[in-house]
Nucleic acid binder design. Structure first.
Length: 525
RNA sequence: GGCGGAGUAGCUCAGUUGGUUAGAGCAGCGGAAUCAUAAUCCGCGUGUCGGGAGUUCAAAUCUCUCCUCCGCUACCA
């Protein structure tokens, strides 16, 4: 391998809020990050891939109370369903953080103190103690602004949904987000790749340009959270708590460790488009205030509809990823999620679309390419890597296409353009199948066995390169293919794209087996 | 309302420093092949490039205008 590589890559999923059960949306984010993490490892990077659970806040406290158990017991239970998901998705996260861990409490409090000690460009402190007041609906657990309110029959004020509201005042610490406005705009301007896709970047900048209000960052009405240092009547607002996880896991507040130096700032925060503001405005503002480096990039992906319908709790159509893996296979699910839709766009998840992709592209084009070639070798070359003769122009052309796909794939991956990466790979898959038909090794078998050996040799090398580069997407099938090609484990990273790693003629090959099962299309629909 | 994005073949989309007959995949139709998971390969598109107007020798690509759809427009997370 690349021992001692100084290239590092730190990628994070959001920490998932334990008020929800894991569904396909969570699986999507996590799988996307896993593909990146696997890709970067194969490409010689030292990778840190973080996921975890967000466990504080009023909703959690309330949900626990309703179940009659402690918040900690409740979060232990739900957090486990998320850590279990990393197992069933066979995701290669290096850490799983829980916001109820001690390391995290320490990091949050250290960050709070650090911000509180600093002053904004206007010379005033970033954090001030004041009062939060407004029209509060107990039923909605939400504040409403004056202009949102409607009047009831007897002139009482009502929330937009008709629930009663009352005027409340609550002591609260405020983060002076307004003072961060010019700093943020300057930062966005200087770092054009900070927020992706571009349309999200536009949204964020226009939001910030519209003026920022100071942010209430502590609560006194419940206690399930990280205590504010020096005033434990207050717990931190869940978002300041949650966002901090990204530096907790890097070792903060100990900034001296090798890990912290290697991994912070993170290379990428992957998020869903629902939490853009928290990641693209609040989090950078907190870090700017603290004088800490900002993450290099934040990518907001889209949503899946399910068979054309919005995924929602009320429709009850959220899909348990475990059921999908059971029904279609993990590699197939991973591939579908990243191939079907340009990453960043919304997409529709349908069973027939998944089956068509899995059958047409994985089983037929890619899997069968491997199977048809290895099967011929098994039957006609004594089950050994054949001895190649001189390469024809067509041989060289195909080999070159395969060897040179890594660069554009890498470039697409660096933009999180998974679908583009897969399209690049598929041009080689298709070229390889066309090559098989054109060369017709089954005819060469009788007419020119030596040439058949060359053709099959070229194909084993092309299949090897395809399996190598597809490992991040469909790791299990690729492992099987590489096993069938008798590729040593230390030649399964991207260094093996360089000359000198091709299959060794004469090497014994095992009997090939299909690596992607064909899926049954449902009778109706 | 304001800001932003989008409207290209049946479907999903690519294509904008303006320039040969506007592309890909899928689906469909026809053919070939039979090594392989009945898996593959080859061929086939008269599309108002949302409508209209304008600039230009030349516009999907620039300008104006209209229509439609989507996102954002803050403190549940």
């Amino acid at each position: 391998m690349t021992g001692g590589s100084n290239k590092t890559f730190y990628v994070t999923t959001p920490i998932y809020y334990v008020n929800d059960k894991p569904h396909t949306g969570h699986a999507y984010t996590t799988i996307a990050c896993d593909v990146l993490a696997r890709f970067k490892r194969l490409d010689g990077y030292r990778v840190k891939f973080l996921t975890g659970t967000d466990e504080h806040g009023q909703k959690v406290a309330k949900a626990a109370a309703e179940k009659g158990i402690s918040p900690q017991a409740f979060t232990d239970e739900v957090s486990k369903t998320f850590s279990d998901l990393t197992e069933t998705l066979d995701v290669t996260n290096d850490d799983f953080i829980r916001t109820t861990e001690d390391r995290h409490t320490k990091a949050c409090q250290a960050l709070w103190i650090r911000i509180a000690e600093k002053t904004a460009p206007d010379g005033k402190p970033w954090i001030v103690l004041d009062k939060y007041s407004g029209w509060y609906s107990v039923r909605d657990e939400a504040y409403h602004t004056e202009d949102e309110l409607t009047k009831g029959p007897d002139e009482t004020k009502l929330a937009p949904n008709g629930n009663p509201v009352e005027w409340v005042e609550e002591e609260s610490y405020f983060f002076r987000l307004s003072a961060a406005e010019p700093l943020l705009l300057e930062y966005y301007d200087a770092h054009s790749d900070f927020i992706a896709p571009k349309s999200r970047r536009n949204e964020v900048t226009s939001f910030v340009k519209g003026g920022l209000r100071d942010l209430s960052i502590s609560r006194t009405t419940f206690d399930w959270g990280v205590p504010v240092p020096g005033n434990d009547k207050h717990v931190m607002y869940v978002w300041i708590d949650a966002l901090t996880n990204y530096i907790t896991a890097a070792g903060y507040p100990d900034e001296k460790t090798a890990d912290y130096k290697a991994f912070w700032p993170a290379d990428l925060h992957m998020i869903g488009k629902d939490i853009i503001r928290f990641h693209c405005v609040y989090w950078p503002a907190f870090l700017l205030a603290a004088g800490l480096p900002l993450p290099k990039r934040i990518f907001a992906h889209g949503w899946w509809t399910i068979e054309g319908q919005k995924m929602s709790k009320s429709l009850g159509n959220a899909i348990d990823p475990n059921a999908l893996i059971e029904a279609y296979g993990l590699d197939q699910l991973r591939y579908f999620l990243l191939r079907e839709v340009p990453f960043g766009n919304d997409g529709d998840f349908s069973k027939t679309a998944l089956i068509q992709r899995a059958n047409g592209e994985l089983a037929n084009e890619f899997g069968n390419l491997s199977q048809r070639v290895l099967s011929m070798i098994n039957k006609n070359c004594n089950a050994k890597v054949p001895m190649p003769g001189d390469f024809s122009d067509e041989d060289a052309e195909l080999l070159n296409a395969a060897a040179s796909m890594l660069e554009p794939v890498r470039e697409a991956i660096d933009r999180q353009a998974f679908h583009e990466a897969l399209e690049v790979i598929w041009t080689v898959v298709r070229a390889a199948n066309a090559y098989v038909d054109k060369q017709a090794p089954w005819i060469l078998r009788k007419e020119d066995p030596a040439r058949m050996g060359t053709v099959l040799y070229v194909l084993t090398d092309v299949i090897r390169l395809l399996a190598l580069v597809m490992q991040p997407f469909t790791p299990h099938a690729c492992e099987d293919i590489l096993d069938q090609l008798a590729i040593p484990f230390d030649s399964r990273n991207f260094e093996a794209f360089a000359p000198g790693h091709a299959p060794v003629p004469g090497e014994d090959l095992p009997k090939p087996e299909p690596v992607f099962q064909r899926l049954e299309m449902p009778e109706t629909e």
